[in-house]
Design a protein around this nucleic acid. Structure first.
Lengths: 254, 254
DNA sequence: ATGTTATGCTCGCTTTTGAACGAAGAGAAA
DNA sequence: TTTCTCTTCGTTCAAAAGCGAGCATAACAT
């Protein structure tokens, strides 16, 4: 048995048991404990494990092996809380429009584990990239590639969106305000979002608590179009009243 | 046994066992360990394996690593030779259709360094991904995401391609034959390629020497449509005659 | 003929491993 | 808490295996 094989086996033990011990490893591989220690030392240098007295434990997922989107996401915890609330709203086999937001991305990651089959129509390059090997049917809107946000926008994307009628549009935004409505930072994406909303039987808006009352550049679509709003903590009473008046189902962790 | 045969056998061992060892390979092929090491070195340069002390392991596609296209490419050296020949064919400021092939991907990498501004229309997710921060204007065709090749295909992609008229289509294929024409392995991509060719003033075909005489499943478009063919080594005389008869400029390293 | 590629061979360097021994840590006993 | 004992660790040395660079040779292509 070669050194790298042994280290691979140690790693696979680590993945299943989360921890390993020097002495038993030494006897199973018929090498001295010194050798095992050196193996663990190497794995530690690579950042895979943390050594401790008598053995080593697996490092939980470092940010390196997470997908691009998740790596660069701020307020990731809040977004994951929201993502966990989405599956009950979506029926198996549904068709969904998804925008470029990281909250929607995380929601799709959760849906991937809880649904057998979904059809996703998106203008997000990250979703195309990371769900290429999923069980989803994925369609791209096409369009002009908008730098820095890796979204596809423009007239071509809009025409494309209009071809589809879907069960739900799952979208996010940059800010919501009772007087100004639902807002985004840039025109092309806000524009496209409006068309997405238009083609969907049900509109699900995902917004974390930092978006409440935040004002942003461009208005997208009015609250009347929203069927369901998912957020990460219970909003203030006036917001609950406001959503009630507009017939919006509001969902937050109990 | 020829060198490339040996490397192919090593590769097939790798695909079944995930790893190989220097010493046993040397004895089964009756060559020195030096030779095996050089084989593995070459495979490592191509991004197929990772070498370790005493052997090498197959690189698994974790799907999250960045240069997916490049890692997955075999004969990368040949493709890069071809890529180097492309810039003189493209004028600064041109618009280009690019397909999903790894040769075209490499050509775009080279163009990025030698041209100020280009407009790229593509059905490749990898290109969207990796050129999002380039100086190119990138447009996606949209369409249905084809798993495993990460290409966008289908009627929606075709409609989209027909919207554009470009200076050049830069495409590759799986095989060319004097009797069968230009061929590909799958229908959706072959189909789209035909429409790409149709919208371009100039059609540039990139093919490495392994494609000559190779027969594949689906015919794409006839040789009459090709304006320029770029390859990595001088083709046989009969091919040169053949290209001459069809008015195709042939380009290879001098 | 000339250049390129594949291969083998040699030599010095690096990696791996085991063995030995003192240092450091953990847990039980005082 | 302090001390004692046993285990575990780190360091060092030496031997063995693997490796890379350079050179020479043969086959092949141009």
């Amino acid at each position: 048995m070669l050194a790298f094989e042994r280290r691979e086996k140690i790693l696979s033990t680590l993945y299943s048991d989360k921890k390993v011990f020097v002495a038993p490893l030494a006897s199973t591989f018929n090498v001295t404990e010194e050798t095992i220690r050196r193996d663990l030392e190497k794995l530690e240098r690579e950042g895979v494990v943390t050594r401790n007295y008598g053995g080593a434990t697996l490092n939980e997922r470092t940010s390196e092996d997470l997908p691009y989107q998740t790596r660069n996401t701020i307020n990731l915890e809040e977004k994951r809380v929201i993502a966990q609330l989405v599956p009950p709203l979506i029926k198996d086999g549904s068709s969904i429009m998804a925008d470029t937001s990281s909250t929607v991305y995380e929601a799709l990651q959760v849906l991937q584990q809880s649904k057998d089959h979904l059809t996703i129509i998106t203008n997000s390059v990250s979703i195309l990239q990371d769900f290429a090997f999923s069980s989803f049917d994925v369609f791209s809107t096409g369009g002009s590639l908008r730098k820095n946000s890796r979204s596809l926008v423009g007239p071509s994307a809009i025409r494309s969106v209009q071809q589809y009628n879907v069960d739900a549009a799952v979208v996010s935004c940059k800010g919501i305000s009772m007087t100004q409505g639902i807002m985004d930072t840039n025109e092309p994406e806000a524009d496209l979002k409006q068309y997405m909303q238009n083609q969907a039987r049900q509109v699900i808006l995902l917004v974390d608590h930092t978006k409440f009352g935040a004002v942003s550049l461009v208005k997208t679509f009015p609250f009347e179009q929203v069927d369901c709003l998912v957020t990460n903590k219970k909003p203030a009473e006036e917001w609950l009243d406001f959503f009630g008046q507009h017939g919006i189902d509001i969902i937050f962790p109990s």
